[in-house]
Write a protein that binds this DNA or RNA. Structure first.
Length: 279
DNA sequence: CTTGGGACCTGGCTGC
DNA sequence: TGCAGCCAGGTCCCAA
């Protein structure tokens, strides 16, 4: 499941091979891959264009082209970008060949991924909330944005317009580390809880980038290696296992139709407007 | 306006 | 052994 750390890893590992190269051939094998335009228009729009740089915004990967247009890729659930794979299997949805003889393949078992070719990247990523690893993302900014929503904090973290890039796994990990119950209301967190959550979101994401992403389900890196971030998960996808902090049992509940893992003992549901004693 | 729930998609798992 | 049925979750869309 590519979230911010996985997309960041793909960006970092793909960049050296493709930045500065031009598209020489583009084969879009699945017509449903392209959003808002025909595959043929995308193919013609890409060929001859140079990739000036590769950027990430939230979970979106942005190829900035020499004509100032952008190829934008969202991998959704099972999408991966493979550099020079040995074979093009039945899950390949597009093949991009470059002027240095390399090629990269968009492979996507569940076919939920999407690509765009646009003049204005903001038309695709413009509604995203702040980048959680950006200096400008402060605890104050997080608190302000959460304060506008009377929804479970887990749902708020999954809302890309509140904070960009956090998905199901890292939302659970950040809430566990901040000791906040996933059903606590976003606008009812104390300032201490907001500060803890802000801090833990950033720590969890940075650690996962250091681990080159989490290889649960189908995520693999461009050259085929696995990430290791999932080995550090404390609650995500660990329902029924002992909590590594208190030894209690990690529980699974459904929040916003998403499997949500947490430790009821470490993350008690505080009654609203009741502040913890002490401090 | 906000919030919640279903659709999309298919491999893999469960249970009969 | 075969297979129906369900689950996984990022995002869009629609309804209340």
């Amino acid at each position: 499941m590519p979230e911010l750390p996985e997309v960041e890893t793909i960006k970092n590992e793909l960049s050296p091979a493709i930045v500065g190269q031009s598209f020489t051939q583009v084969d879009i094998l699945d017509t449903k891959l392209v959003s808002g335009g025909s595959p043929e228009r995308v193919r013609r729009g890409l060929i001859g264009q140079k990739i000036e740089r590769l950027e990430r915004r939230g979970k979106y990967l942005i190829f900035c082209l020499s004509n100032d247009r952008s190829l934008i890729i969202h991998l959704r659930m099972t999408g991966v970008l493979l550099l020079n794979p040995a074979d093009i299997d039945r899950y390949a949805r597009a093949v991009f060949a470059l002027s240095n003889g390399q090629r990269f393949v968009f492979r996507d078992r569940r076919r939920l991924g999407v690509i765009w070719l646009v003049g204005d990247a903001a038309s695709v990523v413009g509604k995203l909330g702040p980048e959680p690893l950006d200096k400008r993302f402060t605890a104050h900014v997080l608190g302000q944005r959460l304060g506008r929503h009377h929804i479970p904090i887990k749902a708020a973290l999954l809302d890309q317009s509140i904070v960009a890039g956090v998905g199901n796994m890292y939302a659970d990990e950040a809430l566990f580390a901040a000791r906040i119950h996933p059903l606590a209301k976003a606008d009812e967190l104390s300032s201490e809880e907001v500060r803890a959550l802000h801090n833990r979101i950033r720590k969890v994401l940075r650690a996962a980038i250091d681990g080159k992403g989490a290889s649960v389900d189908s995520y693999i890196r461009p050259e085929g290696e696995l990430g290791t971030a999932h080995f550090s998960f404390k609650v995500a996808h660990r329902g029924g296992e002992p909590c590594p902090v208190c030894g209690g049992t990690v529980e699974r509940v459904v929040v916003q139709n998403r499997g949500t893992y947490f430790c009821p003992r470490c993350q008690p549901l505080r009654r609203k407007h009741v502040r913890p004693r002490g401090k």
